[in-house]
Design a binder for these strands. Sequence first.
DNA 1: CATCCTTGTTGAACATCCTTGACAGTATGA
DNA 2: TCATACTGTCAAGGATGTTCAACAAGGATG
Lengths: 192, 192
Amino acid sequence: MSGFNVGTRLKQLRQSRDLSQRELAKRAGVTNSTISLIEQNSVSPSVSSLKKILDALPVSISEFFAGEELANEQVFYRADELTEIGDGNLSWRLVGARRPNRSMSLLYEHYPPGADTGEDMLEHAGEEGGVVVAGSIEISVNGDTQVLHQGDAYYFDSRLPHRFRNVGDEECVIVSANTPPSFAEGGATQHH
Amino acid sequence: MSGFNVGTRLKQLRQSRDLSQRELAKRAGVTNSTISLIEQNSVSPSVSSLKKILDALPVSISEFFAGEELANEQVFYRADELTEIGDGNLSWRLVGARRPNRSMSLLYEHYPPGADTGEDMLEHAGEEGGVVVAGSIEISVNGDTQVLHQGDAYYFDSRLPHRFRNVGDEECVIVSANTPPSFAEGGATQHH
DNA sequence: CATCCTTGTTGAACATCCTTGACAGTATGA
DNA sequence: TCATACTGTCAAGGATGTTCAACAAGGATG
């Protein structure tokens, strides 16, 4: 069952946009037969063909493939069920399992006064964003440093070097989300 | 530039896991030649082959393709900069632009007492999760109904029918994240 | 040094994907 | 009714992806 139903997914997307196989094919630069065969799962398209087709919808490839699996998973998490991944310095509570087959990870972060994410700037794949729920925090992204207060928010590409530090004198609470899940790997070297 | 560098990306992933082409090929059930050719971008693999290979890493296909574009985007958002998308009934504040080329959307949600997401159950592609920051909320997912309080959290596949309702007598505040971005499409019909 | 193992690459054969061009089914209108 | 235009499907062959088997380069061992 490695196949994943590419055909059905494509058909849904095409029909939701009210396109005929021929119309989509024309925009994508392939033939209608290609679309037909793929939709019937008669062939497993090459990535290049699929990309051409998705570009014409338009739908990103990652979007196309997002949202497989995941069912019969835990939905609700009581406050004391969140997995603690703090290191004494600061407290991060992860919503859900540590190696979830999920497209993002959700964190409930608590920074005591003076806490930070370490000396080095963090850089990793994915995107992250969050909302400051209480207190204030100093965030540096790609050389730009700002202090955010309650109700403020941030969002950036995690490949940009970044760092968090609580420069206030009260605890800072942030709810944040990262994609792809940063805490998926076993290693503890990579924070945030 | 429709190609996207599949080969380089695969090579990075393989090497980061300290696998040889032959070892990965063996686990994936393909030949080392296939890996070699793909990594050199000499061919654009079929989806089925690529999936076999990624399964062996393991890396999800969507993860593999995630993280293009996005740079020079706004990073920090002051509380009053969040785009309001409430409908009088409840207040949702979106972190970032309305049609971002992003892998998730981040929301600062405020449910007054009695507010809900409407009569019908919501169902859409993607995943969503959140943390209750203040107050309490009743959430139904796939027939399972729970009341979450401050510090509690949730995470589920958005294709499962779901609904939110504030059954308490104080405002409920939630920070939530959705993927893929739910508010990407222009239509206002689809909530959450 | 030779030997052995591993690495990644490549040509020829084979398997699969993709296009060409035709076909049947349905709907609209003259 | 006939014509036209649209829909999706399919067989045959050309184009592309994949395998098999051989090869060269590098490291380790003796």
